[in-house]
Write a protein that binds this DNA or RNA. Sequence first.
DNA 1: TGGAGCCTCTACAACGATGTAGGGTGGCGA
DNA 2: TCGCCACCCTACATCGTTGTAGAGGCTCCA
Lengths: 336, 336
Amino acid sequence: MAATLHDVARLAGVSIKTVSNVVNDYPHIRPATRARVEDAIAELGYTPNLTARSLRSGRTGAIALAVPELGLSYFAELAAAVIAAAEEAGLVVLVEQTGGDRDRELELLRSPRLNLTDGLIFSALGMGEADVAALEVPYPLVLLGERIFGAPCDHVTMRNVEAARAATEYLIASGRERIAVVGAHEGEVIGSAGLRLRGYREALDAHGLPFDESIIGYTTLWHRANGARSMRELLDRDVTFDAVFGLNDTLALGAMRALQESGRRVPDDVAVVGYDDLDEAQYSIPSLTTVDPGQAWIARTAVQTLIERIEDPAGNEPRLLLADFRIVERESAPAG
Amino acid sequence: MAATLHDVARLAGVSIKTVSNVVNDYPHIRPATRARVEDAIAELGYTPNLTARSLRSGRTGAIALAVPELGLSYFAELAAAVIAAAEEAGLVVLVEQTGGDRDRELELLRSPRLNLTDGLIFSALGMGEADVAALEVPYPLVLLGERIFGAPCDHVTMRNVEAARAATEYLIASGRERIAVVGAHEGEVIGSAGLRLRGYREALDAHGLPFDESIIGYTTLWHRANGARSMRELLDRDVTFDAVFGLNDTLALGAMRALQESGRRVPDDVAVVGYDDLDEAQYSIPSLTTVDPGQAWIARTAVQTLIERIEDPAGNEPRLLLADFRIVERESAPAG
DNA sequence: TGGAGCCTCTACAACGATGTAGGGTGGCGA
DNA sequence: TCGCCACCCTACATCGTTGTAGAGGCTCCA
């Protein structure tokens, strides 16, 4: 069994509290005592039991991160950034996958498993405005994503509408007029899909271009496979378009794949723009023009904000923090 | 503050142990008592404090997973599979990133942070045979990867040599004779790179083909960017080859990118085979022929094995468990 | 009628750490 | 010489839970 304070104390001939004081750098300890205790610690290979410390202190030193699925590159990169930021702050990260399923998300928020952690960074995908009450939880919570605004907790996210509008305007500025969309969600207005589609429509409106339902591709999960399938459906419809806005990079990459299979050249026949700036977007053929939505900043800010909430749960009013974005020009859609 | 057993007990007018018994489905409780306790639990919204339970029971219900980096798709997909398998067993997963750095790996193995968990699934990348002693740890440990064999712990991994040999033989069978490699590690023989290179050489030997150092591309981390860079270096050397074996898919995808940039057609001029069968390999242009190394099985087996070790730490001798592999034929290298 | 044995419940100790209160030292100034 | 204070250390209670021992009441059979 692992050594405890008790074992060390007995070996060093002091009380357990003195050992605890040595471990925690309490100043008033005679150098001789300290040395004796440190020797005993080294001899027994003592390390503090974090579970016991947690029980006593009410802090675990761990935070939870809930994402739909790590198999989706966007969330893998998000998790990587969150874990790195947490590590710098001395925290470890417990990762949960919800599958983007509303019921599992709601269940997770109430799950007692979370009390192994000091707080939660929660990327919602299935919940909607109606579930806002479920976010009123008795632990520090930072919300990511865009399903819900006006939540009773801090919210770190991106400027979806503005960024999607900018991406669409970038295509328009390069001379494209029939811009298809891949990845829209039927009837959805509150999630990434709805907001990005709104930005797209705003850009069309601002430039006097018509919104044409026949070049909007609908899908469910934003997988590569769905991007390719959605594009094939558009191609089968026999409509014309000279550009595609993929509502995220994986969709755009899948769509690009389907376009090229069908004999279209990218960007000559059809320009393609994505959204997320995944690592992979640099290495596709052609490389993908996309929106960098500020994910690195989001991860750092989410961790930072959660830490503030943990240290001061009452704290300020819930805040809404928005990342800056920028268009990353690559081959799939050169600037006009 | 959250309600405790004590609060529930007072409200229901019973002892805390009785409440504990209700919570834990101990059978001998009068229905009337049980109902009273359950009402009190509902009224106070009591949930058990897992930290206290952990301290008492010595189990946390969490396991740790250490990988080099979630930004690498292979490890993201591995983590997704491990978390899913753990969830089925009622465990949560704490994810650590080591960056593939030997010192950080060694530090992690000794870290007291791990005692928030019941055990560790450890994917080593920087450590070598010399560090085998560091794997003698006082907690259940399952090793992944191939840096170290003969470790004093269970080891779940893949048949690197055989699979790489099969991939190379697949290329040879399709008529290729000058097969370049991307992703070799200078002088390394014990890691994935060394083992896969060995399989490659075995295949060449078995078919009487010469091993030619001039068509071996060396890199460090297996990023797309390094695959592309390594391929550009090969192209600059002005050597000839009619196939490329990327030691993993991301390298192969980066290499394919560089090949096409230089005007080579894949697979007509150069066939490309990868290793890992990432989701992405289905959607590249052309889609990537690759080795499915049995990752899903590895994830399930690692979790299963770790659970067995947690339940019976003495248990059997350390085992070496090897996944089956298969070649997945796609466009980048059609069968001959 | 007197145990034996089950059912239902309680009191207490323990997991390993830390906060609080307080008990001895010794030095120093009055 | 006394009292005060700073220093060093200890004893004990506590965090919220579960295991152990056992108390009391009941049924049932001899």
